[in-house]
Design a protein around this nucleic acid. Structure first.
Lengths: 345, 345
DNA sequence: CTGTTAGCGCGTTCAA
DNA sequence: TTGAACGCGCTAACAG
């Protein structure tokens, strides 16, 4: 790979001049500029982003660290992030930490040691994260999505997870169910706790005692959910409804139910969470909690870029609301004709 | 952010010595080492990966460029890539080019200008890609997945797409179908052409004339497929079977069919491609073409790392086979009891 | 065992 | 309009 000196030599100018045409400065004689351009072309020269970043202390890149890059929940969020980032001239690099706090920490160090101008983190685990505090104190641009840390003054986009869990559970209770189970997400994921809290809130409001045998933790995947779903559906007093903390797990529940000879929604009502694209399109179409994912992604990217380009900016906090989307997996729409009173959500 | 000189000053040694303890060299007095370590800790010093990469001409990072990071097809591949890369001490950065050749080109330039040691590319578009030729000629480590370019001597992992298309179509023909439609993928994706060729091959073999009205192009997404699927299912002599070039589009077909009052598999047989995780788990379970995705991903990463660490290596070519997974979306298993002769695949 | 010197590839003064 | 000199933060070669 040729470097800027090779070009300078070939064009018979100084490296400084090459640098000037590279960066589109005006004060270069048109003739020399052409000479330089030609040299660049014949040498097939490409400036080193590395060296450039080193001297400018700027990479024009943002890093996105997420819990699991294969989770469809992130798909629309990522689109939002990309659209905004590209518009502002930033590239994006992703890192997938696969719910491993150690791997997450590694990636944070990896990326912030000069590789990116700022970090967007989403899909978090609960744990010791003093290093995030340090980052914030040092002024490293950071945006967290769905991740509240006490006394941490940084940009935060939160989604009303408790509200979502509440909506989902209330819907099931409103349909007359009393034995409502909950399949929670990753035990050390913050959203799991919040959605569970919403579930409990709805139960309490309806006067249904909380029974911890009705709650199982899973891992946000369909495959991982099938066995635990089978277990919870095999107890003597089996639940008649399940609220799953994401759509993938909801399909795990549905699949498990089918293997046990139960039909959804006839024998079991199921509500999911996330409203992934497929939720509307497969059978049964899933009743689920919708989140404005594209908006979350674009807002997150915008916030991060603002902080990168304006270090003085005060941290912002945005809360996004969720909504219930009623489809067919809990029988509400089917019953609409004759049992409207069941549907109160 | 403190730098290595700050540490050196604090520990009252030279920068070189700091560098030595940083890189775990043995020839450092234990006492000085401790002094340095302490200085590092109190200053909260973190070495700049940027500067280090600049001097070592090595980033310990591989870049992965893919067509659409939100496509579940990539999920297991990515897991394979990550497992291998981490084992060898490499980080990974992803870029999603969203089927935009220009964006792809941009990301290639972006990443190879010193940001990564090698590039893994998958999910390709057909187009002018002389820049890939240049990369290969310059010896830049490169692995292509499912992307054949004439006379390009680089590492290639190919999957037998034509064979997969053939398997899928033959299965439908073997079940007695004669009006078999095909929903192809992105028009400028290479895999689309190959799977289409397999479709035609099977038709020809069965003596069924090729009818181009039976082929529509879509974009590998469920949403994008619903309208075109509706169109192809609304012709007077409507198809009784559809081979879709990926599973997401197969679900688009199924959804469209349902909206038209057709039941799958009773009124329409559908075969997908990819065998994404959800394919086995939603209703109807999808008959589809399986590809060894985890193996593809791990092999791709391994090959790339080999080339990075051993520049003399000869390019390797690996071809992976596909297989047909029979589930319920084309009625084969349902008929097994009484019409076994239909099933020849 | 430790320090000095040189250089990775570039951008940015400041003079000329 | 151009170039020399310096520095970004780090590692490597060579002395001592």
């Amino acid at each position: 790979m040729p470097n800027i000196s090779d070009v300078a030599r070939k064009a018979k100018v100084s490296r400084t001049t090459v640098s000037r045409v590279l960066n589109g400065k005006e004060d270069v004689n048109e003739e020399t500029r052409q000479r330089v351009l030609e040299a660049i072309k014949t040498l097939n020269y490409r400036p080193s982003a590395l060296a450039r970043s080193l001297v400018k202390q700027k990479t024009d890149t943002i890093g996105v660290i997420l819990s699991d890059i294969t989770d469809p929940f992130f798909s629309r969020i990522i689109q939002g992030v990309e659209d905004v980032a590209h518009k502002f001239g930033y590239g994006i690099v992703y890192a997938s930490m696969r719910w491993d706090p150690q791997l997450k920490h590694n990636y944070v160090s990896f990326l912030r040691s000069g590789r990116v101008d700022g970090l967007l983190m989403m899909g978090h685990t609960v744990g010791n994260e003093d290093y995030l505090r340090e980052m914030v104190e040092e002024g490293f641009p950071l945006v967290l999505v769905e991740y509240h840390i006490d006394n941490l003054k940084t940009n935060l986009l939160s989604i009303d997870n408790q509200g979502g869990g509440y909506l989902a559970t209330r819907h099931l209770l409103g349909l007359g169910h009393r034995r409502v189970a909950h399949v929670a997400g990753h035990k050390n994921a913050q959203v799991s706790q919040e959605r569970l809290a919403g579930y409990r809130q709805a139960l309490e409001e309806a006067g249904v005692p909380y029974n911890e045998d009705m709650v199982v933790y899973s891992n946000f995947t369909t495959e991982g959910t099938i066995p635990v779903a089978k277990k919870i559906l095999s107890v003597p007093e089996r639940p008649t409804a399940v609220f799953a903390a994401n759509d993938l797990m909801a399909y795990g529940v549905i699949h498990a139910a089918r293997e046990l000879g139960l039909q959804v929604p006839r024998d079991l009502a199921v509500v999911g969470y996330d409203d992934i694209e497929l939720a509307a399109l497969v059978t049964p179409p899933l009743t689920t909690i919708h989140q404005p994912r594209y908006e979350i992604g674009s807002m997150a990217a915008w916030t991060l870029i603002q902080q990168i380009e304006n270090k003085e900016m005060q941290p912002t906090v945005n809360e996004f609301k969720t909504s219930l989307v009623i489809r067919e997996s809990c029988g509400a729409t089917l019953r609409r004709g004759n049992q409207v009173h069941f549907e109160i959500s």
